[in-house]
């Protein structure tokens, strides 16, 4: 064990891990965070707390993570390189660990153009792979980037993201290999709808033996409606939603579509369970946290292991 992270304990125990996410509110609404977290209590092993997701200003992921921690939940603190330079990032990592946060996800972040502050500078002092390297050096060598010793190094369990569906496809596994080489302990993937393509990706992952070096949590998302399915298919860069799934969502009446979306999500998890090298699932139910319990339950992943 590298850390005290609950997620690491679950993964090391050999159980399929389950994570989900919670987007912090756009204002000083701590109860909002507590409420969202409450839906996930006993349902998942860690809760991703997004960092200014889609480049919109929100309550900081650090503060929201602490709110969840105070509730006895396990936050998975996300950090993007878009908004801070390496001084600020290292300071926040130390701060987060001092407040009991021991699991984090290293990302580059959505471009500011997508959010409501397109006029803001994109910092990108580091990229996500360099951030992973930095967090690992802080943990394992107890060193800041500048070379000085850290008094009381942060022992973070380090996550990274992978998108098997973006282009160029042949680089997708190589980029994962770079993240693993940089020091990622676990990976959360982009939402998987095209399981066939994901299987091809995993085949290459296994060929390189990467599934033995890093825990891969397969990302899934329940679709709320045929409109949402179409939006993800057509408008979200790097998202691959096959047409037959869109058609299937459209084939049921509007009021039944949320139910159909959840059923598709559970079927996807069932298919993914059979793929060698999958260590768990990351369920991204955006503003639909109350449904995560049902998904985890129906996918046969409850109760969560006590480790």
């Amino acid at each position: 064990m590298k850390t005290e992270s609950h997620l690491e304990k679950v993964l090391v125990s050999g159980n399929l891990a389950v994570t989900s996410e919670c987007g912090p509110p756009r204002g000083c609404l701590p109860d909002h965070v507590r409420e969202k977290g409450g839906y996930l209590r006993g349902v998942v092993d860690a809760i991703n707390v997004t960092d200014n997701q889609t480049a919109m200003v929100r309550m900081s992921s650090l503060a929201a993570s602490v709110l969840l921690k105070q509730e006895g939940l396990n936050p998975l603190y996300q950090m993007v390189t878009r908004d801070r330079n390496r001084l600020a990032m290292q300071a926040d990592i130390i701060g987060a660990y001092s407040l009991g946060i021991d699991t984090m996800l290293c990302l580059s972040g959505d471009h500011t153009q997508f959010g409501d502050h397109p006029m803001a500078a994109n910092v990108h002092d580091l990229d996500s792979i360099q951030l992973i390297q930095m967090v690992k050096a802080m943990r394992d060598e107890g060193k800041f980037q500048g070379g000085a010793d850290i008094k009381g190094p942060p022992k973070m369990f380090i996550g990274a993201a992978a998108n098997p569906f973006a282009d160029p496809f042949e680089l997708r596994v190589l980029r994962l290999a770079k993240k693993v080489a940089a020091g990622a302990d676990f990976i959360q993937t982009q939402c998987i709808f095209n399981v066939d393509k994901f299987e091809k990706w995993m085949e290459q992952v296994r060929r390189r033996g990467l599934h033995k070096q890093v825990y891969i949590l397969a990302g899934v998302t329940p679709m709320k409606s045929v409109g949402a399915a179409r939006y993800m298919k057509n408008k979200v860069p790097g998202m691959d939603v096959p047409q037959d799934l869109v058609d299937r969502m459209g084939s049921v009446p509007k009021e039944k579509q949320p139910e159909e979306g959840i059923t598709i999500c559970i079927e996807t998890i069932d298919r993914l369970k059979k793929i060698e090298g999958i260590a768990g699932f990351h369920i991204m139910a955006i503003d639909w946290e109350e449904k995560v319990k049902e998904i985890v339950d129906r996918a046969g992943l409850l109760p969560r292991p006590q480790v």
Binding site: R82, S108, H111, D127, A161, D167, P168
Partner: peptide
């Protein structure tokens, strides 16, 4: 690279184009 990634590409690269615009090459 719109995000100045030194170890890219990010997950927004689609058919050779950057996620910020179809007019920008990845």
């Amino acid at each position: 690279c719109s995000k100045r990634l030194m170890n890219g590409p990010c997950g927004g690269s689609v058919t050779g184009k950057c996620e910020i615009s179809k007019d920008v090459d990845c």
